Computed example of a mutant assay.
Amino acid sequence: DSIKHCNIETDQRFKMNESMTHMEELQVHIDNCEIEMMKRAAPMFDQFMHITQLPGISTLSAILIISEIGVDMKQFESDKQLTCWAGLAPANNESANKKKSVRISKAGQYLKPLLVQCALGAIKDKEGYFGIKYSRIKKRRGHKKAIIAIARMMLVSIYHMILTGETFNPSDYESFRNPNPPIKQQVLTEESAIEFLKKSGFDVSKLTKP
């Protein structure tokens, strides 16, 4: 509509029509591929939905991730081996306390970019678990290393969620959101006071109860 009243030459109009037709055809192919993928993914729907609990993981992302790593996590010795295989483990070559390289290993040419995109989506929630983690790492190591670290954390979480069937519930989340929790006041009872005096070396044998 924005070019409706513009004077467009016939050759330009032809090119634009061809481009639009091509884009529409591509979209049809994309839609057909996604429909077929969803059909093939149906038997493992529960596994896919299980890892969508992670922030930044859509249903399509979950299908693509599991298509790459499978659902049998026992094929990997540990989450570290999985992150190495995916190209998300930094090569920490240290000698004499000097780090020679922090490059990411070359692997996971499909999985790594996908997880990075998921990580970018996860950190949009600044108060969310990965958003807080990202902010802290970024201050020390910069954006690129921070986003790789988040992608690695997400893959480790996926590994354990698939392996154990547990939900995503990071134990340190509350400590991130509230680094200075209120101190609980303890009620001092007579028994606890006497026990404290004993441990402090006082002779409590002559104490009498009121």
Rank of each mutant, 00 (worst) to 15 (best):
157 S>G: 10
167 T>L: 12
148 I>M: 10
150 I>A: 00
154 M>G: 01
153 M>P: 00
157 S>P: 06
176 F>T: 01
175 S>I: 11
158 I>H: 02
168 F>A: 03
166 E>C: 09
153 M>E: 06
145 K>R: 11
147 I>M: 08
160 H>D: 14
162 I>F: 07
154 M>Y: 08
148 I>A: 12
161 M>N: 11
173 Y>S: 08
173 Y>L: 13
150 I>Y: 02
175 S>D: 08
159 Y>W: 11
146 A>C: 13
170 P>F: 04
168 F>R: 00
149 A>E: 03
169 N>R: 15
145 K>G: 01
166 E>L: 04
150 I>P: 00
158 I>W: 03
149 A>C: 13
162 I>W: 11
145 K>N: 14
175 S>R: 11
166 E>R: 14
161 M>S: 10
151 A>R: 01
173 Y>A: 15
144 K>G: 09
146 A>Q: 05
174 E>Q: 14
160 H>Y: 15
148 I>F: 08
165 G>S: 08
144 K>M: 09
163 L>F: 15
154 M>F: 12
145 K>M: 08
160 H>E: 13
148 I>S: 02
151 A>T: 07
171 S>C: 03
174 E>C: 02
174 E>R: 05
160 H>T: 12
146 A>F: 01
160 H>Q: 12
160 H>W: 15
158 I>G: 00
164 T>L: 13
150 I>W: 00
145 K>E: 09
174 E>F: 05
152 R>S: 04
164 T>M: 11
174 E>W: 02
176 F>V: 00
143 H>R: 08
162 I>M: 14
157 S>R: 07
154 M>K: 07
170 P>H: 12
144 K>L: 11
153 M>S: 07
167 T>H: 14
146 A>N: 04
165 G>L: 03
167 T>R: 15
145 K>Q: 15
167 T>Q: 15
167 T>S: 14
145 K>W: 06
148 I>G: 00
146 A>S: 13
163 L>Y: 13
145 K>S: 09
158 I>M: 01
